[in-house]
């Protein structure tokens, strides 16, 4: 585990739509095993930033570098499309807010989990199925549902299935966009717990975009606060939430309803 090279390094990332700012001059370093939260309200640029970091959007300027398993550092923005697609299937994972965006419809849960394995050349039905069952256990989905279609699952189960489908190839960096959006509070809690446990057990790095500060408190080691496309504050999660410096961060923190 190289200590000197970050897993992901972004410098001066900007995404402009003409005069409109998606995000501007964002820099960050992410190290193996760290979970970074990006918070802000709608329109803050956090989703745009996530898109730029994960190769789905091409930034107007700036650089994004990623360290591969063998230690070489690649410039994500210069990667060819085949290389980027391969990266997205192996070393990276994406958890979408709407699980339907991250699952394959019309295909059983087991096939959903096994697909990435088959895409990487797994050719033994029995072993693929065994690994799918193992992952269903890990995300707390009843094994008996392995041959059911995700359309028959509750939204919380769909989200957990999406996580299994993404993590099955042991990606080193997972991008999550509002992973608990749209879920009931109790379902959220269970999901967050699962994500927390998995990131710790698997030593994952993750970048989690959310508007929900409680999610960051639970999952993230570090936090970036965005507003109007810019990072207004950053630091350790507990420091940013307990001792916010920037007026906007203070507003955000004080606006959270305490039950």
């Amino acid at each position: 585990m190289a200590a000197d090279v970050p897993l992901l390094r972004a410098r001066d990332v900007s995404k402009l739509y003409g005069a409109r700012v998606g995000c501007r001059d964002v820099g960050l370093d992410l190290w193996p095993g760290e979970v970074l939260g990006i918070v802000g309200e709608s329109g803050s640029g956090k989703t745009t930033l996530l898109g730029c970091l994960s190769g789905r959007l091409v930034p107007t300027s700036g650089s994004v570098e990623f360290m591969l398993r063998d230690g070489t550092v690649v410039d994500v923005l210069q990667l060819s499309e085949p290389a980027l697609r391969k990266l997205a299937r192996t070393d990276w994972g994406v958890v979408h807010q709407n699980p339907r965006d991250g699952l394959r419809a019309g295909v059983t849960a087991g096939a959903n989990v096994g697909e990435r394995l088959m895409a990487l050349g797994a050719r033994h039905y029995g072993r693929i199925r065994a690994e799918a069952l193992d992952w269903l256990d890990r995300v707390e989905i009843d094994r008996g549902r392995i041959d059911d279609w995700p359309e028959t699952f509750s939204s919380g189960m769909q989200q957990r299935l999406q996580i299994a489908r993404t993590l099955v190839t042991r990606p080193r960096l997972v991008f999550m966009d509002e992973p608990t959006g749209g879920l009931d509070v109790s379902v959220q809690a269970r999901l967050l717990d699962l994500v927390r446990g998995l990131t710790a057990d698997l030593g994952l790095s993750a970048i989690i975009v959310t508007h929900d500060l409680a999610v960051t408190r639970l999952l993230a080691h570090r936090l970036l606060v965005m507003r109007g496309g810019e990072v207004v504050e950053s630091g350790l999660t507990d420091q940013v939430l307990d001792d916010p410096q920037h007026p906007y961060t203070q507003l955000l923190v004080s606006s959270v309803l305490q039950p």
Binding site: G235, L236, D238, Q239, D242, D243, Q245
Partner: peptide
């Protein structure tokens, strides 16, 4: 104490 722990800046 919190400042030493980096909980306060």
């Amino acid at each position: 104490l919190r400042a030493i722990y980096a909980n306060y800046r």
